[in-house]
Design a protein around this nucleic acid. Structure first.
Lengths: 183, 183
DNA sequence: GTCTATAAACGGATAGAC
DNA sequence: GTCTATCCGTTTATAGAC
């Protein structure tokens, strides 16, 4: 039987998100037009606009999941007292979340298109700042800052390791982060 | 006395490069229109086109310097036999070159706008590949690849350490790279 | 819910006057 | 060497029919 309108809506909405995510990662945010998204999934631009009022709204919907996951993780990390244990928890949680959102992970932070939108930029920056202080306290050294902000953006590594399965990638990234952060 | 035409030309050409570099770094390549470059430096778009036939040409002119420097460094590194000595030479040379081109460094690799242009993408990828093999041989492990490609894109660290002087930044980045690459 | 049609602005790029 | 004016394709976004 044919789907109800509500089912059809959910299906189309999800298709937009999936297509947009793939194209954002492949071409970058700025170079992905709504026309390209619509063409790729075989609908019209106007139909995309029925679900999202702007291009940014699509991006925000895509990022919301991983942003929420990261936030929850930071909340838990805050309750851990030992410095070493806290770092291990943060690295584990961070990398787990990256793997869980592997489809969108190659995009984050890196793309200049993201940083031009106040709400997104602020959210990402605030989260990063919070993680930095949880790891290294109120006055992190330059070395600590450098290490942290590199680890915070694993995109370059992920993009080059597409041939690895989730488990192998996870362990590789965890070792990478720990090596980087043990300053 | 007023400048000759040749002097004026050189001055304008340089102003275009300086302005474009600043804007590419700040807004990304895609989001920097020729109109914006022209407006920022107080000339018309047509005048910019008198010096560069396309937007890409401006970018290529900006990258040429650091690409050549990196290439020369790889040539020298190739003559070094000891594995450890070679890595130290590569890290030193790489970071020195990043500092020397600090104004453009926050842009590199990261920007999706760069990677859409075959010539630039191939050049950057070939160089990266060459450095990888010089460091880790023909069959680098996943850990080695991950570490290398992270170190190859120091943009995230540089963007956050603008308050450091050249010398302090250089030493911080060298420590960062060595920690990362000693897999 | 999806479409056609179109508006309004902006993009890269060129012609021709001064 | 720099400008004005313009072309043409593409972009985001909306109105209205089905």
């Amino acid at each position: 039987m044919s789907p109800t309108r509500a089912e059809q809506a959910e299906k189309t909405r999800q298709a937009i998100l999936d297509t947009a995510r793939r194209l954002f990662v492949e071409h970058g945010f700025d170079a992905t037009s709504l026309q390209l998204i619509a063409d790729t999934m075989g609908v019209t631009k106007a139909n995309v606009y029925y679900y999202f009022r702007t291009k940014i709204e699509i991006l925000e919907a895509l990022l919301d999941v991983s942003i929420a996951a990261f936030d929850a993780m930071l909340d838990t990390a805050e309750t851990i007292r030992g410095k070493r244990a806290r770092m291990e928890y943060l690295v584990d949680g961070f990398v787990d979340q990256v793997i869980a959102n592997r489809a969108i992970a190659p995009l984050s932070h890196t793309d200049p298109g993201l940083r031009r939108h106040d709400r997104i930029r602020r959210t990402l920056d605030d989260q990063a700042e919070r993680g930095l202080h949880l790891l290294f306290g109120d006055q992190p050294t330059a070395d600590e800052q450098a290490a942290y902000f590199m680890a915070n953006d694993l995109g370059p590594a992920i993009r080059r390791l597409t041939h690895l399965g989730d488990d192998e990638l996870r362990e590789t990234l965890k070792r990478l982060c720990l090596r980087l952060l043990r300053v």
